[in-house]
Design a protein around this nucleic acid. Structure first.
Lengths: 240, 240
DNA sequence: TTTCCCAGTTTTGTCGATAAAAATGTTGCT
DNA sequence: AGCAACATTTTTATCGACAAAACTGGGAAA
């Protein structure tokens, strides 16, 4: 089961370290979805004091990555088909607009980063084929970098950061799939390549259509997985 | 000259109270834009301990209503024309989509709340005409309620909550205008009435156009005010 | 058996104190 | 004067301890 027990690895303050570790473990699923987050346990899990722990939890709860009820502490937000649908539709609405703006505003360096991150994504499969899931997940890093690069040229900072939030929430669901599926490598690359080509050729409508479809596809797969695995949450009161 | 010094008025925990009070004072401008937020001062200002104060600050900083630098504490985010433009464009992109969805999904009770909140907004001027700015600002409450009602029927929870965040950020700038302008009452009502009528008649394109223009108009006025008042921030290092 | 109430335990939320870091002010040197 | 090193004060970030609230389990009453 899950075990970490790092102590240091602090860039600066203990709170920041706690935020990073917590975020990682929640997005990854190392902390199971509907479970309770008792500060005592987290405290000894990460070797960080209670105060920075609470501060980190407060920060993440404001960001929607942790739930907080008034005098009943914190818990990992449960996964639900309803939320996944909300996330998916929101991304299809917003991220697509961000992409549109990025395409019309993007310069050469924007294109370069897209190409570079794509090749990193592509090369991941050539080297590390057999491993289905590595814990620190290099693949996720590269995938995130590619999707980040796409909308990096969107001039609206707030919209971009909202997209990042949505992407992170979607990642929680996506990582869930990893155990069940081996995620057919070639297919994934093809998907992303056509998307990239549409973007680089400044074909706005094509890129938008492609991006919309890309989000829809992964969502469909995930919804299917969700439907067949109603077991979630280890603690009582799973309901949202 | 800010003064509050409430002690209780807590719905539940001290942190929640701190969040509410801080949020109010930042949005209102009671805490001046680029100023530093020393916990000592806040602590005695609100009569709340340091720990809940830090927790509240962390929460708000995750929401973008407070800035935090690693070992240099917290401060109120500065106001800038650049950010106002970002907020405006983002609202014109997102909030308009939310409105579109609300119009196609809204039911009778949605319409009712729009009508009700509009009349409350309208009646505000009939009763409380002369006061230019009341501190707790009943007007803001009603205005917020109306704009909230418009998109309340948007089925995408995440998009809606993002709109609320944007609205709140915009409010910071809007409240700034209150001192300089007397904001011509009749004109404001007319604006909102035509918007409401377009929405209620399910004229999607008309409502969208109206809403877009509404946001643009207030932004234009505010940008003008901003240009003529470069003085902001009482503490050193105003730069963004 | 079911329900309700009451101890005991765990957990949460808050306070005060403290070390580390930053900001400030002061002195001495070129 | 201008600048640099140092001493002092302020502020931040963190820890440990404690009261209040929530949860748990066992027994008494219906």
């Amino acid at each position: 089961m899950g075990e970490s027990h790092h102590d240091d690895s602090d860039g600066a303050t203990a709170t920041e370290a706690a935020v990073q570790l917590l975020r990682r473990d929640i997005v990854t699923g190392a902390l199971t979805p509907a479970s309770k987050l008792k500060i005592r346990e987290l405290k000894e899990r990460y070797g960080i004091g209670a105060s920075p722990m609470r501060e980190a939890l407060a920060q993440l709860s404001a960001q929607g990555l942790v739930q907080q009820s008034s005098q009943k502490g914190f818990r990992v937000p449960p996964l639900s088909a309803a939320e996944l649908l909300d996330i998916t539709r929101s991304r299809q609405l917003i991220e697509v607009e961000a992409l549109r703006l990025a395409i019309t505003h993007g310069d050469a360096s924007w294109e370069d980063e897209i190409v570079a991150s794509f090749h990193l994504l592509e090369h991941y499969f050539r080297r590390v084929v057999p491993q289905p899931t590595s814990p620190n997940d290099e693949f996720e890093t590269r995938h995130a970098r590619f999707h980040h690069a796409l909308i990096a040229a969107c001039p609206l900072h707030l919209v971009r950061s909202f997209c990042e939030t949505l992407y992170e929430k979607a990642t929680r669901y996506r990582l869930m799939m990893r155990t069940d599926y081996g995620f057919s490598n070639d297919c994934v690359i093809a998907e992303h390549r056509t998307l990239m080509e549409a973007v680089l050729s400044r074909d706005v409508d094509g890129a938008v259509r492609e991006h919309h479809a890309h989000i829809q596809l992964t969502a469909d797969i995930l919804l299917d997985v969700l439907a067949h695995s109603p077991e979630q949450g280890d603690d009582r009161f799973v309901g949202q």
